[in-house]
Design a binder for these strands. Sequence first.
DNA 1: CTCCCGATAT
DNA 2: ATATCAGGAG
Length: 218
Amino acid sequence: MASRQLTRPQIFEMFSRLAEANPAPRTELEYGNDYQLLVAVVLSAQATDVGVNKATRKLFETVKTPEQMVALGEEALKQHIKTIGLFNTKAKNVIALSEALVANHGGEVPRDRDTLTELPGVGRKTANVVMNTAFGEETFAVDTHIFRVGNRTGLAPGKNVLIVEKGLEKKVPQPFRRDAHHWLILHGRYVCKARKPECWRCVIEDICLFRDKTPAPT
DNA sequence: CTCCCGATAT
DNA sequence: ATATCAGGAG
């Protein structure tokens, strides 16, 4: 049985308010080109954007292409990203991914979700981020924040990320589809937080179906 | 399902 | 001390 969900007018109002509060939302990952964006997103799994940026700031000064990443090598890459969780598998994946880009894609980032997903360390969520942020597609990258916000608010409930993604595709209206996933992620990160949601300063508190509204601190 | 895994907030 | 962080692969 489907849990309670927001109505279509409520959803339009929800994004209207989020858009008013942040007219030009943007990823907080730092990057200089499509390839660096792809690498940053792979590194960001189960890690904070702040932590990833701290490591990539120096890495991306010298590594701007997959060729340069392959030349750097796995062990040197590990030294750059050792402060990020899961750094062993991430280093291996980034090198393998870079080798695949050089060997099969002319060193360019593919503009196709299925092709992106074939790359080592790139799953559906990472591919959706790249499609949206690099290529402007109306994709919904359901990460931990969007999964939580989608379920709490009643915007797009679902027991796994694919169900939530399909719900968003069906329910998010124009003109909000392009930037919806950015608004949701930022809302989840700074207001609708996992541990201590700050409902007292939430702009959609009256619409949201989340029951345990946190009282404002005294 | 488990494993991967450091930094930070609580 | 534990939960969480722009997940993916075996």
